[in-house]
Design a protein around this nucleic acid. Sequence first.
DNA 1: AGAAATTCGTTTCACTTGCAACGATTATCA
DNA 2: TGATAATCGTTGCAAGTGAAACGAATTTCT
Lengths: 169, 169
Amino acid sequence: MTSDNFNLSEFLPYRLSVLSSRTTKMLSRVYGEKYGLSTPEWRVLVHVARREKMSVREIHDSVYLEKPAVSRAVAKLEKAGLLRKTTCETDHRLVEIALTAAGLEMFNGIVPEALSFEAAILSAFSPEERDQLHDLMERLHDVLDGLPDATRRPQMDSDGFGSLSKDAH
Amino acid sequence: MTSDNFNLSEFLPYRLSVLSSRTTKMLSRVYGEKYGLSTPEWRVLVHVARREKMSVREIHDSVYLEKPAVSRAVAKLEKAGLLRKTTCETDHRLVEIALTAAGLEMFNGIVPEALSFEAAILSAFSPEERDQLHDLMERLHDVLDGLPDATRRPQMDSDGFGSLSKDAH
DNA sequence: AGAAATTCGTTTCACTTGCAACGATTATCA
DNA sequence: TGATAATCGTTGCAAGTGAAACGAATTTCT
């Protein structure tokens, strides 16, 4: 393909962007209109729900959000009474973030709706096709990792062994 | 899956968002660092290059950009001498947007780099897998279209029959 | 121990975005 | 024809974002 007939709508990065934007926007109605959460807030809420305590940096590492975005989302969620911040006793730089009962309740309210949104999307695909999709996306990430100047990729959720994983010392 | 073990990193909308963000950001180095374009400007440039003349609304319809974003991108591109704006003779509300020689030159410079970025990504996949990816993404769009309150989906580039397609009157 | 470097979370600032409103122009229709 | 409605592109404004800078706290290294 030459410059002459370059077609943006067939260009993979553009296609990914449009698909992602539409999906995120439609999902955001679930946690936005009804629960008043922004996308960063939703992501933080979900992530904190998986462990007892998390620091801002841990959230930043595992969720695709810049540090300031995490900080602000946490501040808003705290103001809304959905989580509680306490400075870590053993390291006063760290903040221990934990859901409140209200936060957990909201989390339990949203998740089924979010999952049913996802289910509605995936209902159009067979189990094999879902695997294909999953596999293809994973490999796209791998390719990006190998490119020069690769952007940061949030680490996968290594399943919950709780507490601040500030490792052995 | 219950709320208890909801895993954000396995959640399709989130996965799409991260993949799209990474891809867009890495691509933006191509047109950003070297040519000083923002993403909306890049999209407008590319789109205007496919036809002789376009209006703001036509760009808005076919590119996934809000009307103000198009308007501002066009303004910047004009200031940079990459395109020219003239008010339509037969309808003074419309603006006819066309690339200048400098704009075309930049377009011809960027496109090969953008395509080689895409090629680098797709090199990890067989032709069949590329078709699968294309097909799966297309069907994801179809599903979104069928959902209530579906967001706007930019119309595909029906290949170039030029001029302002303000239809017969 | 003490100085320098590092890490953590927040804040600041410039920039971008999305939505609504606006003036200008054209279309609609009584 | 004349008034109303619709469309086009732009602008204002409030909210969001990213990068760098910052103070506080801890680690590192001599």
